[in-house]
Design a protein around this nucleic acid. Structure first.
Lengths: 142, 142
DNA sequence: CGAGTATTATTTGAGTTACCAGATTATTGT
DNA sequence: ACAATAATCTGGTAACTCAAATAATACTCG
């Protein structure tokens, strides 16, 4: 019993949505003195509980050396810090610092503010429905 | 009468979802010999009816000179072509060529295939609901 | 136990991509 | 004529990414 595949139309809408959201984050990150990848990563640090360098690496599906540079930038700004893993000393856990939490909140608020028109086509019920469904999506964490 | 604001939790889930989708596109584009931006733009050429350079420019919210290069790359590969506007000779309409349509289909199929697990938390009804809601989002087209 | 292997993260260096600002051309509108 | 718009060209910068080499730690199995 397989599920009905989603329509192509859905994916076009999804990509347009993705593109629009990406531009939002790019714009916000510039104002905050962050690069777009740094801003996205900052959000992920909280979304994934206690991420290690390698788990972020898998999320981005990129070379490990890439993550080092991104976290370096965030750490220099005091937004995150590298913490030792309790049992495995090879692993470094990325912790969100208070200043980082503040920036995170700013980003989210900016997204909320600038996404107003995006959800204009949805009524209150649909909006709640959408929020509920998005949170049910199974984002690969590792 | 303002709408209830969406929760922060929702935005974290949304960003995680977008990040995952973006990585899918990046991975696919590499396999197809395209840059990520080229792949995204290729999908947009069909989604927005008869886009001009400037309408794509507004969608990306970026400098016009940027779009020129992206379309150049797609045109060199024979995936799209620049067509004259029927009345305004300044405007160039981007047309999707057969080869481009083929690539588009490949990208969509790849997205469908690799997104299977993503929607595992949703049952058939919720899946249809989600697809419906995404298509109701008001993506700025111009 | 210990040699070999695997994992985690970093450093370095190089290449590509993405983006923007300014000047330019062609066309349109007033 | 004059200004506005659409697209391009040029040059430059910053961001992003990977590949290879390195170091430290953990695992495994004879």
């Amino acid at each position: 019993m397989t599920k009905q595949p989603l329509s192509e139309q859905f994916y076009f809408a999804l990509v347009a949505f993705l593109l629009q959201a990406k531009q939002q984050v790019v714009a916000i990150s510039g104002e905050l003195g962050l690069t777009s990848v740094q801003a996205l990563t900052l959000l992920m640090v909280d979304s994934i509980t206690a991420p290690s360098m390698s788990s972020l690496c898998k999320l981005y599906d990129c070379d490990a050396s890439n993550i080092t540079g991104i976290i370096d930038g965030l750490e220099q700004k005091g937004l995150v810090s590298r913490q030792p893993h309790p049992t495995d000393r090879r692993i470094k856990i990325i912790r969100l610092e208070p200043a980082g939490k503040q920036i995170q909140t700013n980003i989210i608020r900016h997204l909320v503010k600038n996404s107003d028109h995006l959800f204009d086509g949805l009524n209150q019920t649909e909006l709640a429905q959408f929020a509920n469904l998005v949170q049910k999506l199974q984002i690969p964490k590792k």
